[in-house]
Structures are given as C-alpha cells and as structure tokens.
Design a protein around this nucleic acid. Structure first.
Lengths: 213, 213
DNA sequence: TGCAACCTTGTTCGATCGATCAGGAATCTG
DNA sequence: CAGATTCCTGATCGATCGAACAAGGTTGCA
C-alpha cells in the first residue's frame, strides 16, 4: 500500500492518518493480547489510542479486520527481527547460529509478549482467527523451526527427539515466563522485563537444549 | 459441604442438583478455557450442560462465581492426582520420584488442558481473577516446585539454573503442546490426545531436564 | 483561493450479554 | 398424604457491545 499515490483509483492517504492508524493497531495489539478478542472492547482500544470509537470502523471494516492488522504487525516485527539476525550470521557455523537465533527468539518474546499471548488465546480451539494465524503466519515459522531442529539433531547438537516436540518445548519454555509476566512478578522475585532476567532465561533454555557447554 | 443435612440452617441439597451442578461446572471449565472468560457466554455453557441459562444463576451467584467453581474443580483434580502419585512414591529416591512426578504433571496437563488454558488466559494481566488464581491455587504449587528444583539442582540432577526459570520452563514446555492441541493437529502429524504422543512428550521434557540417561 | 477528498467525531441502532423475577414441577419431610 | 422446600424454566430487564450514519473539520491539489 503506497503512502501517497496519484494513480487513477488509488486513495490518497495522508501521513496523519497513517500515524493514528499505527497507534490504533498498537493499542489493539496490547488489548487483544491482554484481554482476548472478546474481552477487548473497541471503545477501550480507541481510548488507549487517543481517538474515538467510530474511527476504528473508518480505518478497519470490522473488529476482526483490526485484529488481523494487529496480528500482522506483530508477526512482521518478529520476521523482520529474525531475518536481520539471520543475515547478520551468514558464514557462522550452524550450531552457533542456531543458538544465537534461539536466543534472539526468546529475547523477542520477552520484549513483545503480545504475539505469544495472542497465539495462546486463539489456537486453543478451531475458528476463523486460528485459521488466519496458522495459515498466514505460524506455519512457515513452524516449518523452518522443524528443519532447524532436524538438522541440529542429526548433527548431535540437541537430543534426538521428534522435531515437533522440540518445537512445542521451545515455544512453551521460551515465552511462557514473559507471557505470564504479571503472574511471574507476584510469584517470584524476578522482573520479567529486566534485561538480566531475560538473558538468564535465554541462557537457561539454550542450556537445556544444547547442554551445559 | 454435606450432601444431606438436617441441622438448623443448613440447606438440604438433593443428589439430582449436585449432578446438574457438576455438569454445569464441567461445561464452564471447557468453555472458559477455550473461549476465555468474556468469550464464553452463560447461555452456551447452559446449552452444553443441557440446562437453561437462568439455572446458572440459581446455582451460582454470578458468572464470576461459576468461573471460580470451575477453576476450583480443575485444581482439586490436579492436586488430588499429584498427591496420590506422591503418596504412591513413598520411599523412592528423590530423583526417580521427581522424574515420575514430572511425568505425571505433563500427562495431567495433556488430559486436562483446560487448567493451563485458563491460567494462560488470566495471568497475563492483573485483575481479580488472577488474584484468585495466584493466591488460592498457583502459589502453593509454585513454592513446592521451586523447592523440588532447588533440591534437584544441589544434587546435580538438573542444571544449576535459578529455580524460577526452571518453573516457567517446565510449565511452558510441558503443557503448551496440549494447550494448543488444535493448532498442533494442523501444524504437525501428531495427535496431542494420543497416549503415545503424550508419552513421547513427557519423555522429551524429562530428557531435557535430567539429561539423556 | 476554491474545491474535492480524506479524516474525525457525536449520535444512535439492533443485537446480545448477564441477571432478575414470577411461577411451575419435583422431591423431601412430618 | 399434605405442606414446605428445593430445583428448574419462560419471559424479560437494563447495560453494553460492534457497527452505521450524518455532519463538520482538515488537508492536499489545481
């Protein structure tokens, strides 16, 4: 979608609209992830974004479409982060690269817990929103992760366990502490938004997968 | 709460009422866990329980109270299952006992994914329902698990990692595959309700914690 | 400068939610 | 068997939700 276009039927989008649209999407990501799709009201999203509620139906056809935009923005950020990390690791040996990308994934899930919160929300039962998540975003990530684990296992770098199990162990062990951040703050003396805690958690998960080396 | 009591102010509860009450609680646990507190409607819970909607407000003062009853029943089942397992393991050495109790926990989370689905729902943000969960149910389990991991770590049975991290690794790595069971069915060729798959997942998690022995 | 399209708001609608109430059916007790 | 209590249902209320609509303000362009 071009920002300023003068072609025949294209709508001219003004910068101010893009900015408020982004604020709406960010507010939606926060509230959908904390309160679930049904628990987040369009009025509360609008309030957090600093606009009025009918504006959401101007920028997005429906609540569902706003949810999709929020999900898209979160996955775009994840993919961009992981792609940049991967391209920075060109030439590095496979095992070291895998360790560092695993750390990057865990760090991302700590700084952006909204994404895994939404996945946890919507993938518990079949429905149109799970269709969207799986088909559009989760499956390609799953496929790449499976390939990575199979390669690591055949190289002896991680235990020889079917890759699908390793996938759910990683996506569970890594983000859960941050998905349940508020609970973690009450149960333990750890602050899951503290960089040292994030680092320690990434260390812990990597150690379990790759051994204490 | 006695079933039949003739003491002064006690209400006499009939067996048929207990049965329907249990059906309502079970239906509520299913729907709250799949659809979140706001997403589950009292009418749908009533339909699944085979009763009419006003009956929920006869047995429970409010939707919140019904949610608490559902949560209580799930934790009661977990605690009973774990207590029975522990008492059957009297005399067994600590490490073997810990392995087997960890397997029991993972198996339970596979057969009763509702519990962790609800925890994942409500512990993402502060609120009265998270208060109830943490204060009434989660904290004692957390404390016991921390003690277990600290003892195992000082015995060299698990990597020397702060116990709070191990707690969130276990509660993430174990149940996530079953919490996201419908997603897992679409992504992989595994059926997360298959006993062999559950066994394999428990194997995998225990291997990561205790080593490949 | 004037006009046309875009951006934003106030108001409101139909639908649906949780909860209440009155009344009837079933069960227990004396 | 009769009276009282418990269990359950149909009808309905006020509140709130997502969405639509009309109207005004703002911006960009000729």
């Amino acid at each position: 979608m071009p920002k300023t276009s003068t072609t025949s039927n294209a709508r001219v989008t003004r910068p101010s609209a893009d900015a408020t649209r982004d604020r709406i999407v960010a507010a939606a990501a926060d509230l959908f992830s904390e309160r679930s799709f049904d628990g987040a009201t369009t009025r509360e999203i609008a309030t957090r974004a600093g606009v009025t509620q009918p504006l959401l139906n101007y920028h997005f056809r429906s609540k569902e479409e706003l949810w999709q935009a929020a999900v898209d923005s979160l996955f775009d950020l994840l993919n961009q982060t992981m792609d940049e990390r991967a391209s920075g690791l060109r030439g590095v040996d496979e095992i070291t690269s895998a360790k560092l990308r695993m750390r990057e994934f865990i760090t991302f899930s700590a700084r952006n817990p909204q994404l895994h919160r939404i996945i946890m929300q919507e993938s518990k039962a079949d429905g149109p929103r799970m269709d969207y998540l799986v088909n559009r975003h989760v499956r390609p990530i799953y496929e790449r992760t499976i390939e990575m684990f199979e390669s690591l296992a055949s190289a002896g770098a991680v235990p020889n366990i079917p890759a699908a199990h390793l996938y759910y162990i990683l996506t569970g062990a890594g983000p859960t502490m941050f998905v349940l951040g508020p609970e973690c703050r009450r149960l333990s003396s750890l602050d899951p938004s503290d960089d040292d805690v994030i680092e320690a958690h990434a260390d812990a998960v990597c150690r379990l997968f790759f051994g204490s080396a």
